[in-house]
């Protein structure tokens, strides 16, 4: 009976995030101020006082979610005893930081670099994503493969019956038409300006790889299950390689949680803003206990 800690990705942000943590914990306060200094702008002002639209800016969202997640974990006086960790998309950098693979500064700068590189790739090619509800993963993959002359792939295996596809605007539209005929209960084009976790992110992958090469990766204190394979890697080099691949490869969250369950995880604690991952964990493994890492009072 072991505990896993999972870290959320982009999309979990909300106005006011991290404010109470900043006020309650001196450790967290120091990390927030350190982040302001490293990023060159006061991200805490946007997190605490900004509107939802301000938080949506890519250069803000990813570092903000990383900062909140890692500050919450590092500031905990009694850290939950985790036997394994994982992070959803951006959350993988948070998990690697919490597991000691990256230090705080490198993790934050990687999150910021990742965001900027992804934004550039989004601007280069009109692209989007769509959530597909109520259809088997295999059929969604089949529908994407049936789209000719356009890029569209399965990008986020969030939980059974909820998969996100990613690609060019036309490719996603074509895939949605096919998916409806195949019996998808719902296809919902998402208000995102990019095709994350698809081959269209190749320029961002190159840029991120350069940034990653400058960072020092250490062995993980606990296994970190990575998105690309849904499995933990044992060496820093392999961890680094999977992190680079992640930008153009799908997030296999369903498989990741199932693998963690098979490895003995029975309690999944979400560490970061929001509670999206708790909902996904319950859908993937209904028997699992899903909760949040509490802020220290």
């Amino acid at each position: 009976m072991s505990t896993a800690i999972v870290f959320p990705g982009q999309g979990s942000q909300f106005p006011g995030m991290g404010r109470s943590l900043y006020e309650k914990s001196s450790t967290a306060r120091a990390l927030f101020e350190r982040a302001n200094s490293l990023l060159g702008f006061r991200i805490t002002d946007i997190m605490f006082e900004g509107q939802a639209e301000d938080l949506k800016a890519t250069r803000v969202t990813q570092p903000a979610v990383f900062l909140h997640s890692v500050a919450l974990y590092l500031s905990a006086a009694r850290k939950p005893e985790a036997s394994m960790m994982a992070g959803h998309s951006l959350g993988e950098i948070s998990a690697l930081t919490a597991a000691g693979v990256l230090d705080f500064d490198d993790g934050l700068l990687l999150a910021a670099t990742r965001a900027q590189a992804m934004q550039k790739a989004c601007d280069a090619v009109p692209s989007t994503m769509a959530a597909v509800l109520g259809l088997d993963d295999g059929k969604v993959e089949e529908a994407c493969a049936a789209v000719q002359d356009e890029v569209v792939v399965a990008a986020n295996y969030n939980c059974p019956g909820q998969l996100v596809i990613s690609g060019s605007v036309r490719g996603v539209e074509k895939a949605c038409e096919i998916l409806k005929t195949m019996g998808a209960k719902r296809t919902l084009v998402l208000p995102v300006g990019g095709a994350f976790h698809s081959p269209l992110m190749e320029p961002a992958r190159v840029e991120l790889a350069q940034a990653i090469e400058k960072c020092s990766f250490r062995p993980a204190r606990v296994p970190v299950y990575q998105n690309v394979t849904g499995l933990p890697e044992s060496t820093p080099e392999a961890i680094k390689a999977r992190l680079i691949e992640q930008l153009t490869a799908p997030v296999r969250w369903t498989q990741t949680i199932r693998n963690m369950w098979q490895a003995g995880a029975r309690t999944f604690l979400e560490c970061g803003p929001g509670n999206v991952l708790q909902g996904l964990v319950r859908k993937i493994v209904p028997e699992a206990v899903a909760d949040a890492v509490p802020e220290e009072g």
Binding site: Q10, S89, A131, N158, V164, R186, L188, V276, L280
Partner: peptide, 14 residues
């Protein structure tokens, strides 16, 4: 499924 106010690629659709 309920669509959240601000659906994202990482959204949960309860």
């Amino acid at each position: 499924p309920v669509i959240p106010d601000d659906p994202s690629p990482e959204s949960s659709f309860p």
